[in-house]
Nucleic acid binder design. Sequence first.
DNA 1: GTCTATAGGGAGATAGAC
DNA 2: GTCTATCTCCCTATAGAC
Lengths: 190, 190
Amino acid sequence: MLDAAAERLVAQGYTATTLREIAADIGIKAGSIYHHFESKEDLFIEVFSRGIEVMVDAFGDVDTAMNGCDRESDRLEAHVRAHLGALFEHGSFTAAHVTAFFTAPEELRSAIVPLRDDYEHRWNALLADVLPELDSARLPIARLFLFGAMNTTIEWFDLSGDLSLDGLANLITVQFLEGVDALNLQRSTR
Amino acid sequence: MLDAAAERLVAQGYTATTLREIAADIGIKAGSIYHHFESKEDLFIEVFSRGIEVMVDAFGDVDTAMNGCDRESDRLEAHVRAHLGALFEHGSFTAAHVTAFFTAPEELRSAIVPLRDDYEHRWNALLADVLPELDSARLPIARLFLFGAMNTTIEWFDLSGDLSLDGLANLITVQFLEGVDALNLQRSTR
DNA sequence: GTCTATAGGGAGATAGAC
DNA sequence: GTCTATCTCCCTATAGAC
């Protein structure tokens, strides 16, 4: 049911997604949803929360796996790869979060914002490590650029195309760190 | 009326925006809208079209003004500035387009796609000029990165903050061309 | 845990007066 | 060009049977 809700969110946004559709997708009737959730808002709070959870878990896994890594650019790339993995490889929760969060009503959003903030702080800390020379005032801007690059891939990246997720993660990382020249030099600039 | 519709689109997305609200915003009743447009879809087709028009016009103006410019990075930065100007300084049409286009029904979107394609082609041509060394297969990806950086600013950039639109355009351009190092070296790396 | 039935509200759209 | 009144449809949510 949560999966169906997430997929509808990605395709249609919050308001256009109806409980009838979600119910039909999983073969029940709309009224039955209220046995599991108190309201539409309640259901989607759960969906958006899981979207963050998937990202945070992926982030944590990389932190563990990359514990002894001394090359900061590799750590960054692994985290970029994990974020993209959350977007494309772990169901629709994160994709739903990234695409539909701003289409949800304000009350719902404010319930989710603390979780979003937590994830953003992790990235700020990571970037401060990876880029110690970066002015701390510029750090959130750098993060926003990187988030923009990662999250907009959902509008154009095709998992079944020539470019793999690993390749995309490398592309985004080197583009972020070294600029457009890096787009011609995949893997060779590290 | 179109302005009111655009502002509602930015704030709420397509489905959540009602004709009653738009009518109330400009002091008329919902039924009166149908004297000007045949349907809700019709009205928003006009709004989304103007969003593109504003961008295309801004792009054309820069082409004219930068005609004799021999520094390609300056040309690029001027176009980035123009795109940001369309987003933040010329009403809500472009902002509405960028934020709400994907919340609109498929039929409406397909009517607008040709206009979007036209604008994208102009940028592809520009980037091919500015970055002649860039593999042509990578060119659309470079454009998508740049669009991602420009368009996501709408979620965080504040016109009344410390950073000006000129500064933001410079930041985005050098970040795009030279990577994150450029974030510490505004204006000095050109 | 799911069903049917339905309440209550609000949406887009239309007709005809002014 | 705008109004009022209204139609039809579909939404969220509830109540009670199974």
